[in-house]
């Protein structure tokens, strides 16, 4: 028995437990490339991170804002797409394939695409704006427009994921309650609110929890589109830790930031899971 688990256990230990311990160890030391003494400094880095207004005042709120916007928007669009694709119509399989395409695109490539589309001089978005007589916008020069572009990239990337899983959920629902509702004279909105949504809720909960935890560590889109700018205003938790560890080469503080962020997502994830689970229980 032990021998059977051993390969997996060793792999996990080597690639997950050991790095976490190494990282945790680093977070208690002054550990930089130019200062290899690794002096033990206790909680100094943690205090720095926690008291840094750019961390709890900016990076974490940005991350949570991004998470809420991205997950709720891609859930909404994904559900809409799933409902459309759940009907039979001519060319359904073609449409389904097209809808799934963004899933095949690497996030970095999608982000580069998005950055170019919103480029203030050459971007297609400004071309269209000018075409209809509106002034061009320097999208990536302001905090909220940049945030919008980042969220848009993420929503574009993840809507198909929601659509696929929710479509699978929709197709696994029993048909009879819907037939009973048709006889009971329920209109489309009533059917959606009273039948589809409650029956689909377990799938929605799982999707939202998985995506939320995943969205908390977003890096590629932000790094490629804004690099956390302009002037750190769109900096997320992962960018903060990355810049600290690998650009300033301050491994100690970077590790501390990563661990604090890790704690935040654990708490956030648990609360979210409890809340959504309660919603499901109530609906049962």
């Amino acid at each position: 028995m032990l021998a059977l688990i051993a390969p997996a256990a060793v792999t996990m230990a080597l690639f997950q437990v050991v790095p976490i311990i190494l990282g945790a160890n680093a977070s208690f030391r002054d550990w930089t490339l130019y200062d290899p003494k690794k002096t033990w400094v206790g909680l100094k880095h943690y205090i720095e991170v926690i008291t840094d207004p750019a961390f709890f005042g900016l990076a974490i709120p940005n991350t949570l804002l991004f998470l809420v916007l991205s997950v709720s928007l891609s859930l909404t669009f994904g559900l809409g797409l799933a409902l459309l694709l759940n009907r039979s119509f001519v060319g359904q399989s073609v449409v389904r394939t097209i809808v799934l395409l963004p899933l095949m695109v690497a996030p970095v490539i999608a982000s580069i695409m998005m950055r170019w589309m919103f480029n203030d001089q050459f971007g297609i978005v400004n071309v269209v704006l000018e075409g209809v007589g509106l002034p061009p916008v320097a999208w990536l020069a302001y905090r909220w427009t940049t945030m919008m572009v980042i969220v848009l990239a993420d929503v574009w990337l993840w809507t198909p994921w929601f659509a696929v899983l929710l479509l699978a959920g929709l197709q696994s629902l029993p048909k009879e309650p819907f037939e009973a509702a048709a006889i009971d004279a329920a209109g489309p909105w009533r059917v959606f609110r009273s039948l589809t949504l409650p029956m689909l809720r377990p799938v929605i909960v799982v999707c939202v929890v998985i995506r939320s935890i995943d969205a908390f560590r977003v890096f590629d889109q932000v790094w490629v589109i804004s690099g956390g700018g302009p002037a750190r205003t769109t900096e997320m938790f992962s960018i903060y830790a990355y810049v600290e560890a690998f650009q300033r080469m301050n491994f100690g503080k970077g590790s501390a930031a990563a661990l604090v962020g890790g704690a935040v997502i654990v708490v956030f994830g648990l609360v979210l899971y409890r809340l959504l689970n309660r919603a499901v229980e109530v609906s049962k």
Binding site: P174, E176, E179, A182
Partner: peptide, 19 residues
């Protein structure tokens, strides 16, 4: 449509609204 036929139906697996 079914709703305008003035019928009611009992299904094999009941088809109650579970929630």
């Amino acid at each position: 449509p079914p709703k305008d036929r003035d019928i009611a139906m009992v299904f094999q697996n009941y088809a109650l609204y579970q929630h």
